[in-house]
Design a protein around this nucleic acid. Structure first.
Length: 403
DNA sequence: CCTCCACCGGAACTTACGGAGT
DNA sequence: ACTCCGTAAGTTCCGGTGGAGG
């Protein structure tokens, strides 16, 4: 037992001293103290929140930008600073609430989350939405504060639940005698506004802030700054940062991707006991991230989603029409003795896989020969097949079932 | 310039299920 | 114990639609 303890301590000491000083600064939810190339967005957001200090309700704000362009980081950063500033002046009449609508994509859960951030408990199911809304109003009035509700990835909420909640949130100030509500909506879907009721659109779009993607040079700046805090001096081989930045720049300037690559590359070097992080480590990291993503998607997918993915991988990762995919899918489902779902449902599953980024589904028009979607895997088909090995039925099928 | 294919994608509905309030 | 409600997966029905071929 004492021997085991020694091994643990020795291992920890060895590992903790090799590569990283603090790897947390490379994690996607870390909010750094400086955000390079986002000065304009920070200034704009701060200006529009400034009325809080005069006890006025800020305008509703809409924030656009692709994934990994710093929307969430900038918002959290500014909110934190405003809060600090307010507290230093002894101001307590406003409060922020942050909800990620990817996880809470229903009216009920968003409201419940805001209410909880105001310090009241809401059961996670069982009440009617109307009841939760009443509790929300009561909570705001009881606090008497200006509540700024941040709805991150708001497109998930709109797609699943429509814009009714937003409509009510933007109009709730008329119904409140004490307290006020402002909304900050964050989205990476530029066209989501088109789906909204015109009244919601105009009131939510009072202020718009756009986050353009980073280019490779800007990504390099960001990585350098974080790397200085994350890694011990001199462990990064020449060109590693630039390599991560160039990969991420090709994928729509996603800073999260770049940071992930750098962190995982460091972890791989660490596990291997290497003294420096090299470009070879980054290449391995890229594969490992892809593998983890696939395993994760495969695990959480509904059953027929798995089948669709399997069929696509078996076909070499590509279908030129939904009809072709569906025919193959039916075939495999029958052979597994599973009742196939309708083509309509498969069409939705393809959209879901597209959103997860594991396939791209491009609409193509073939004139007389109709309009359909071309489905292409974004990852190696073998990675998918490997990820299915643990599944009892599908794993068996891959090994023995096909001829 | 119009047609018409092979789908796309919105909407309303069903079924099964699990939790809350009373 | 019973009712009400939300969620998730799936179905049925159906009105669009971009562009190659006539």
């Amino acid at each position: 037992m004492s021997g085991g303890e020694d091994i643990v301590f020795e291992t920890l000491a060895r590992i903790s001293s090799s590569i990283f000083i603090n790897r947390e600064v490379l994690r996607p939810d870390y909010v750094p103290n400086t955000l390079p190339h986002r000065e304009e967005q920070i200034r704009k957001l701060t200006e529009h929140l400034a009325p809080l200090l005069r006890r006025e309700r800020p305008s509703n704000i809409f924030i656009y930008g692709l994934t990994g362009t710093g929307k969430t980081a900038v918002t959290k950063y500014v909110l934190r600073k405003v809060e600090e500033f307010g507290r230093s002046k002894g101001l307590t009449h406003f409060t922020f609430s942050y909800t990620n609508c990817r996880h809470d994509d229903t009216t009920y859960r968003v409201l419940a989350n805001i209410v909880e951030s105001l310090g009241h408990r809401v059961p996670f199911t069982g009440l009617s939405t109307a009841e939760v809304f009443r509790r929300f109003k009561r909570a705001v009035e009881a606090s008497g504060k200006i509540v700024v509700a941040v709805l991150d990835e708001i497109d998930f909420l709109i797609k699943r639940a429509g814009d009714e909640l937003l409509y009510r949130l933007t109009r709730i100030n008329d119904e409140l005698s004490k307290g006020k509500v402002s909304v900050i909506g964050i989205t990476n879907d530029v066209r989501i506004m088109e789906r909204l009721d015109p009244r919601v659109r105009s009131s939510l779009g009072e202020v718009e802030i756009v986050f353009p993607p980073y280019d490779a040079l800007q990504l390099t700046d960001i990585l350098k700054e974080r790397a200085a805090k994350a890694f011990r001096e001199g462990v990064l081989e020449e060109g590693v940062i630039e390599y991560c930045a160039s990969i991420a720049a090709k994928e729509h300037g996603d800073a999260r991707r770049a940071l992930d690559l750098l962190r995982v590359a460091g972890e791989i070097a660490e596990r291997a006991g290497d003294k420096r992080v090299t470009i070879a480590h980054v290449r391995i990291a890229r594969e490992e991230i892809e593998r983890d993503m696939v395993v994760d998607v495969v695990r959480t997918l509904p059953y027929h989603g798995k089948l669709v993915l399997l069929v696509t991988a078996l076909a070499g990762g590509r279908f030129d029409s939904t009809g072709e995919l569906y025919a193959n899918y039916r075939e495999v489902a029958m052979r597994l003795g599973i009742e196939p779902v309708t083509q309509r449902r498969v069409s939705d599953i393809v959209s879901e896989l597209d959103m997860l980024g594991i396939v791209t589904a491009k609409i193509i028009n073939r004139g007389r020969y109709g309009k359909t979607r071309q489905i292409i895997l974004t990852v190696d088909p073998n990675t998918i097949l490997k990820a299915f090995e643990d599944d009892p039925r599908i794993g068996w099928f891959i090994k023995h079932g096909r001829d």
